[in-house]
Amino acid sequence: MTLVKIDRGVALLFGVAFAAVIATGLGMRGDAGVFPAIAGSLGIIACIGLALGTLRSNPSDEPSAPLEVRRLLIICLCVLGLLVLMVTAGTFIALPLFLFAGLRWLARLRWLTSLLISLGFTAMIYLIFVQLLAVPLPSGWLTS
């Protein structure tokens, strides 16, 4: 997809969103909605400007840089897993698993190297945040 097509989509999507912001702002009690309406109007102007810019003949229309969907999917799933596991199984189970998965599948490090780095980095996080800064990191309802 080219950047011009992306800009067109962004202009349309945000144009609708800003229109909704203005409508909501105008319906607010007192002067609470004045500023959202001003911000929304500014956004609408920007969207119109962006859309008009894409209509002009643009010989320098570049394709968007190719996206490695598989890798993006892996990292998104890993992050999702990290957040879910942090709450359920606890931070210090989620962290090494996340790091191990990331290092193994994204950096393609060897099993042992991935394991050692994951454990070492988790230990560092434990030292900094739990021991040094006394942050009560989630222990997880499955383990507690």
Partner: peptide, 27 residues
């Protein structure tokens, strides 16, 4: 123009929360 759009998004996000003057919820 892209900078203006990003700034407008930031301004709208800045409106989120309880209004300091009237106390009503916004977005």
């Amino acid at each position: 123009i892209k900078g203006m759009l990003a700034a407008a998004v930031g301004l709208v996000l800045a409106c989120v929360g309880l209004d300091n003057f009237t106390g009503i919820q916004r977005f």
